[in-house]
Amino acid sequence: MATDGRSLRERLEEIRQRGISAIRSATDRDEVEQARVEYLGRSGLISQAMSELRDLPVEEKPETGQTGNRVKGELETTLELRLSEIEAAAAASAPTTSVDLTLPGRRSWRDGIHPVTRVIDEICEIFREIGFTVATGPEIESDWHNFTALNIPLDHPAADMHDTFYLADDRLLRTHTSPVQARVMLAHEPPIRVLAPGLCFRRDPWDASHAPAFEQIEGLAVDEGIDFIEFRSAIDFFVQRFFGAGTRTRFRPSYFPFTEPSAEVDVTCFLCDGSGCSTCKGTGWIEIMGSGMVNPAVFDAVGYDSEKYTGYAFGMGPGRIAMLRYRIPDIRLLYEGDVSFLEQFG
């Protein structure tokens, strides 16, 4: 390139202008490449110009050098931009594929956790946030663990509440998960905060709302200083988390030999928001758990000091809750293992 008496900086500026217009006017990848070689290549115009740098007087070198670098950078940026424009245009104008992409893709098997397990897991996770751990106990129990330790005399109508499957004189299939309370207290000292999910058994023949075996979740909190207010608040916390903020609870007197005071817990019906529907029998409330403050007689049975420790306990049916939540009309569906049923919860 002729110098024409112009300074190197002026010439670099010219290279910049010409280079930008050359790149911008390129219409395909090849033309872009040509421009790149011409201006930015190893022996391109910029390299040539910069090779003259060494002949300049010392005081001009820095500024001219910076100009060279700036021009080079600018051309590179322009080039990349142009290249992506060209590619985008090419992609847009590419001929359409001959494959019918509405054909179904290749899938894996559907799978899924049982809806009752989902409910159990969710309940456990919520209570974990307020310090609970998970415990289990045997399904075959002694009558002592299932009844006596829980303040239920064997020869008492309270035992009628549990129509029991006996296996031997003093062995039975547990009628509730409450014996886990006794087992945990026998094995540990407070503070205790445990949940015990598991299967229980009652002699209820199969129908739409009864099964001879069903899941229950027991909860037990024992420590110094636990009172009814804490109990109510903990249950409220759970209800708001599980059924949604804004769900209200209602505690009603009830009777369980192992709690005193005892309470049945209702929540505002989550199907009709409390306005009354067939699920809540028009009351706006759904009963979800039995609960109460641990009866000192239970502490006595497991050797705890009932003056020192207080606590609360509760029990609920995750199967029933799953049926309400997913509107499953018949409990037998939970235990049939029908693939068409299970895939709905995948």
Partner: peptide, 26 residues
């Protein structure tokens, strides 16, 4: 205590979350 609590009204109890010690049961 149950007589007192139910006559007081279970729903009249204040709700006050309390601090707690986490479970000693693994």
């Amino acid at each position: 205590l149950e007589e007192v609590a139910r006559r007081f009204g279970y729903d009249a109890f204040p709700r006050q979350p309390r601090s707690f010690r986490p479970s000693a049961v693994p």
